[in-house]
Design a protein around this nucleic acid. Sequence first.
DNA 1: CCAATAGTTGAACAGTCGTTCAACTATTCA
DNA 2: TGAATAGTTGAACGACTGTTCAACTATTGG
Lengths: 131, 131
Amino acid sequence: MSDLKFYDVEMDRTDCTVIHQETVDRVRDTMPDEDTLLELADAFKLFSDSTRLKILYALMEAEMCVCDISVLLGMTKSSVSHQLRVLKQSNLVKYRKAGRVIYYSLADDHVRTICQMGMAHVLEEDEEIAP
Amino acid sequence: MSDLKFYDVEMDRTDCTVIHQETVDRVRDTMPDEDTLLELADAFKLFSDSTRLKILYALMEAEMCVCDISVLLGMTKSSVSHQLRVLKQSNLVKYRKAGRVIYYSLADDHVRTICQMGMAHVLEEDEEIAP
DNA sequence: CCAATAGTTGAACAGTCGTTCAACTATTCA
DNA sequence: TGAATAGTTGAACGACTGTTCAACTATTGG
């Protein structure tokens, strides 16, 4: 049917022909879902900003309020608060209110594990460059 | 000296006073260097885009050329090539030339380890939402 | 009660980033 | 040799993101 041909033309955004069809098919079967990969990307995105990493490393050592973190990082309370909101929404940090002061801390040990593993990778990379 | 006072005013970008000076001092001592944290953020940034993740997951399964990856992901060769350049520069993938065709593959097992750990985190998060 | 202050919020701005397009190189094979 | 094709490149565009500013809420202590 001409429908099929039309469909193929519409979907082709690659301006090239497949070279190893079997490989493509096999790989397609083993790939995680689109949604899962988007979720994974979003998870890594949380750790991909140095301000957020600084906040997380600070909270690994102590429960801290917004002012403390602001002074520690030399940034405005607003900026810190915005990032804490992101980390809170992603369940990486939790908080506790005490009067006017809000104390933030790590939600669990995932953060520590993930940062340690990323750090190991970075340090190993550096070794390769200057052994 | 008025110099000192002026310095303090200049440096203060936090519009707030420290609440727990001891905590801030202690945390500051344990924090990794600024440069290290920037490097760590850049490392996580590589895994924070779903296209790059797709490419990396594909290469976990098989050595592939640019055309194969383009067809697999339904993207232009150009787009794939740009991302492969990023991954190549970061030593996450390597390549081998065979005539007109360039075969890409994972540089080492770091990628597998990091993705698996990120994925474990994502899957665990999902469990918490719907156990 | 009210001034002071911890923290939040949303809009605005600037910088970053991924994709596309068009032009290019390089290799093959007919 | 020259047409075809794998892959790269840089500019342009739009979307996204982190910071700042200003205005706001809420809590406290005099």
